[in-house]
């Protein structure tokens, strides 16, 4: 009798072992280093056959706006934000020692010397490996961003409730 009862439990255990691991990243920061870290973790997790979702909110949008968009925004204040910090994943500033762009320039020189992939290349890799990137609708409204301002291949914009579902269903959630 007990053997019969154990059988389904054993099945569940083996299913559990084969279950795809899920990672959720909340990409909140806009500076170069956290953007870089998010991209490294997301691309590697996808390479490890994990299901990766990135919820992009607030300053994280710096990495989602197309590099070519100079002044996105619908009104003066939103455009002023774009003046103060140029959007685009290739234009991220360092959180320390930015020195008017000298810091990031040096960082990219070092990356080249030591064969470290730039955030933009890793983002391409993420998209190639099926990482799902969800833009936050509220931030888009706040910053006056249209879908056309953002890079291609993103999921439909969502809100905090979807992010919470992604986070609670994931095996690990990172707020970066």
């Amino acid at each position: 009798m007990s053997a019969v009862e154990l059988a389904p439990a054993a099945e569940v255990a083996s299913e559990g072992a084969a279950k795809t691991k899920k990672i959720c990243i909340i990409a909140y920061s806009g500076e170069l280093e956290p953007t870089w870290a998010s991209m490294i973790i997301a691309s590697t997790a996808a390479a490890m056959d994990m299901e990766v979702s990135i919820f992009v909110t607030f300053w994280g949008f710096g990495a989602l706006v197309k590099d070519s968009k100079r002044l996105p925004g619908k009104n003066l204040m939103q455009r002023m934000l774009s003046v103060m910090q140029r959007p685009g994943i290739s234009h991220r500033k360092l959180s320390k020692m930015n020195f008017m762009g000298m810091g990031p320039w040096m960082m990219f020189q070092l990356a080249k010397k030591y064969n470290v992939s730039k955030p933009k290349d890793l983002l391409g890799m993420c998209q190639e490996l099926g990482v799902k990137i969800y833009p936050c609708q509220m931030t888009m409204d706040l910053f006056g961003l249209n879908k056309e301002d953002l890079i291609d291949g993103l999921e439909e914009p969502v809100g905090a409730a979807t992010m919470l579902m992604l986070a609670t269903e994931a095996d690990s959630t990172l707020f970066i």
Partner: peptide, 13 residues
């Protein structure tokens, strides 16, 4: 060769 983390893993993938 010469590539830094996570590139060897990404190349393997």
């Amino acid at each position: 060769s010469g590539l830094s983390c996570p590139l060897p893993i990404l190349r393997a993938t």
